[in-house]
Write a protein that binds this DNA or RNA. Structure first.
Lengths: 204, 204
DNA sequence: AGCTAATTGACAGTCACTGTCATAAACGTC
DNA sequence: GACGTTTATGACAGTGACTGTCAATTAGCT
C-alpha cells in the first residue's frame, strides 16, 4: 500500500480527501453550533458539505466521530516519554501535558475547546469520549511502562494511568452549578491543577 | 432485589409492573448470553418477555439500560458515610466498598458479575457505563463533602472522587491479554487492590 | 356497577448505520 | 495519448433503535 510513491508527494487524491474531510467536519461543527447536535442529521451535514450521505460514513464511522478526533493523547504521549526519568509518573505526565498544550497553535486550541465543549455537553458524545478515556489509560500505561522499564500490563502502572485519567475527568466534567464557573476558568489550567493535586497525594 | 414491598401497599398494579420489568430484564440478559448483545433485537426481547416492543421502551429508555442498573453506588455511598471520620477519603471509600460488597447476597453478586461482564465487553454499553462513572464521581464527591464538611463543589474533593473512579476503571477494564488474567482473578479483589494502591500514594 | 387514570399494543414514522453495485476520477505504465 | 488498475463516490435498499399518537384494555377507587 505504500513504498511505491516517491518520498515526498502531496498526492492529488489525498489532497482532495483531506479537503473533503475538512469540509465535512467544518460544516458539521457549524451546524451543531447553529441547530444543536441532535437536531442536525447526517443528511444535512452531507448536503452542506456537498457530498452524499454514504460518503460521510466513509470519512467518519459514526456521527459522533466528527467531534471525537482527539489525536491529542498521541502528542501528550510523545512529550511524556521525553520527560526525564527521575520524575514520578504523575509529575512527568503533568509536565508532558503542559508541553503538549503549549505547542498548539491558537486555531488548534480554539478547535480543541469547541470540540471539548460538545464532548462535555452532548451525552451521546460524552459517553463515547469516556470510552476514549479508557483507551487513553492504556496508552498512558504503555508509555509509563516504557519509561520505567516495567511491564505494560503491570497492575501498578495501569493504576497510575487510571488515576491520571480519573482526575482529568473530574477536572473537565461539567457539574451542576460548577458549569459556569468552569466556563470562566481555563480547562487546561484545571487539568494542570488536578494533576498537581494528584502528584501531592490528594490532600484534603 | 426487594423494592418497597410492604410499607403499606404492595399495590397490585405495581406488582405487575415489577414483574414485567423483571421479566424483560431476565429474558434480555438470557438472550444476550445466548446470542450476543448486537444480535439480539428489542423485538426479540419483547416477544420473549411477552410484551409489545412499545412496552419495552416504556420500561427501559434504551436497549443499553437493561444492563445498566447499577444502584450499587448508592449502597456504597451509604457505607461510605458510615466510616469513621479519621480515615482518609480513599481509605474510607475502600472500607465502604468492602462492606457494601460483603453485604450482597450470592445471587446479587452473580447478577452484578454478569452485568459487569456485559458492561466491559460491549462497546456500546461500556461507553454508557463510563458516563455513569462520571455521574458516580459526583455522587462520591457529594458524600465525601458531607463527610469532611466541605463544599461539594470543592475542587480537591472532586479530584479525589475522580482519582477513585479512575483507578476503579483501570482495575475493571479489560486489556488485550490482560482480559483472561482478569477473568481468573476476582474483580472485587482487583478493585480493593487498586484502592489500596491509591491510598498508598501510587508508588511504582 | 361506574368513573378515572394508568398501562398497553398497534401503527407509522425518523434517523443512524450497513451493504452492494455501477460510475467516474486519479494513478501508474506503455 | 491510450490502456488497465485502483480508489473515491453516489444511488439504492435494507436493518434496527427509538419516538409519537391513538384506541382499547385494566387496575384503582367510590
Amino acid at each position: 500500500m505504500n513504498e511505491a510513491p516517491a518520498v515526498q508527494r502531496p498526492g492529488l487524491r489525498e489532497r482532495k480527501k483531506a479537503r473533503t474531510r475538512a469540509a465535512i467536519r467544518e460544516h458539521a461543527l457549524r451546524l451543531f453550533r447553529e441547530q444543536g447536535y441532535d437536531a442536525t442529521t447526517v443528511d444535512q451535514i452531507a448536503e452542506a458539505a456537498d457530498v452524499s450521505p454514504s460518503t460521510f460514513f466513509r470519512y467518519f464511522p459514526t456521527k459522533e466521530d466528527v467531534v471525537l478526533l482527539d489525536e491529542f493523547d498521541i502528542l501528550a504521549v510523545g512529550a511524556f516519554e521525553a520527560q526525564s526519568a527521575d520524575l514520578s509518573p504523575v509529575a512527568a505526565f503533568r509536565a508532558a501535558a503542559r508541553s503538549a498544550f503549549g505547542s498548539l497553535g491558537a486555531d488548534e486550541l480554539a478547535r480543541l475547546r469547541e470540540t471539548a465543549e460538545l464532548t462535555l455537553t452532548v451525552p451521546e458524545i460524552r459517553a463515547r469520549a469516556m470510552d476514549e478515556f479508557a483507551r487513553t489509560i492504556g496508552v498512558i500505561a504503555e508509555a509509563a511502562a516504557r519509561r520505567s522499564g516495567r511491564d505494560p500490563n503491570d497492575f501498578a502502572v495501569r493504576n497510575v494511568a487510571g488515576a491520571i485519567v480519573g482526575v482529568i475527568m473530574a477536572a473537565t466534567m461539567p457539574w451542576s452549578d460548577w458549569a459556569e464557573e468552569a466556563a470562566g476558568s481555563d480547562m487546561l489550567d484545571r487539568i494542570d491543577a488536578a494533576l498537581a493535586h494528584l502528584e501531592a497525594g490528594l490532600p484534603l
